[in-house]
């Protein structure tokens, strides 16, 4: 039994079966199933209103729907967002949610979850342990900021950052909890080409180290370049799924995009 679950973890880190969510009469997500293999980058594309962001919310627990979601061999639908995050899944938001009145460093130091100083009584009872942990977390934060090349901003208030820097901050903050699956909502939107190339580079580098990505994106060239697999959504349903080259050739996908966006 034990080795079986191990195998599941290796094969697909996330599997979604028959996911549904209705808002009144609108079927935002209508019976979607998908599988994501560990260590891959999967792009989720589709025209506006296709249900991509709702899908994200359902998977990360921010919205309740019906269907079955398995993450690392554990059933996670019905779990609240914070418990899902603790399983090792972290999401970013379409509009970056930087905590503007906290510094960049504080934004990162907030993230780790086994902090002794997050228990109220420990503030008085285990001061030494907290101090040690704070130092470790700070070191880790600085290392991650360095990776994303924003270490020089560590003492800035996050509100003072540019839009692109906020995106980096959000990814850096997500990294702090050592996720096995990172879900990014439009990492390239509103970002200049140089920074977009950099973000692609970070994603590839992190994938090499074994991290899995599920990425919503509108920038088709950018996402097809870094993805191992593309999933296309339209009107709440998954209409196509496959390697980027294949998807790029499909006439129905092109039609949906031209029809939906044009």
């Amino acid at each position: 039994m034990h080795y079986l679950t191990d195998q599941v973890v290796k094969l697909d880190i996330l599997s979604v079966r028959n996911l549904k969510k209705h808002f009144g009469g609108v079927k935002a997500v209508d019976g979607c199933s998908l599988k994501i293999d560990a260590g891959t980058v999967v792009g989720l594309i589709g025209p506006n209103g296709a249900g991509k962001t709702t899908m994200f919310k359902l998977i990360s627990g921010f919205e309740g729907g019906s269907g079955e979601i398995m993450f690392k061999g554990r059933r996670i639908d019905k779990l609240p967002p914070f418990k899902i995050a603790r399983c090792g899944m972290v999401r970013t938001f379409q509009i970056p949610h930087a905590l503007t009145k906290m510094t960049v460093l504080e934004n990162l130091m907030l993230a780790p979850n086994i902090q002794c100083g997050e228990q109220i009584w420990n503030i008085w009872l285990r001061r030494k342990k907290i101090k040690e942990q704070e130092k470790l977390i700070k070191d880790k934060s600085q290392k991650i900021l360095e990776f994303f090349e924003i270490l020089h901003l560590e003492d800035e208030y996050a509100g003072a950052l540019s839009g692109g820097q906020k995106k980096l901050l959000e990814m850096a903050r997500a990294m702090m909890i050592d996720p096995s699956l990172m879900m990014l909502d439009e990492p390239f939107a509103g970002v200049n080409p140089t920074l977009a190339r950099k973000i692609s580079g970070y994603i590839e580098e992190l994938r090499e180290s074994g991290m899995t990505f599920l990425i919503i994106e509108h920038d088709i060239p950018a996402i097809t370049k870094i993805s191992d697999k593309i999933i296309v959504m339209n009107e709440g349903k998954i209409m196509a799924e496959g390697v980027p080259e294949e998807i790029k050739q499909r006439q129905d996908v092109l039609d949906v995009y031209l029809g939906g966006e044009g």
């Binding site: 418990k83 995050a85 938001f93 949610h97 905590l99 009145k101 906290m102």
Partner: peptide
Amino acid sequence: KSIREDESVPSALGK
């Protein structure tokens, strides 16, 4: 403080 600012962030991070 993170809750005061935007509670979706700490919950997405596992708080």
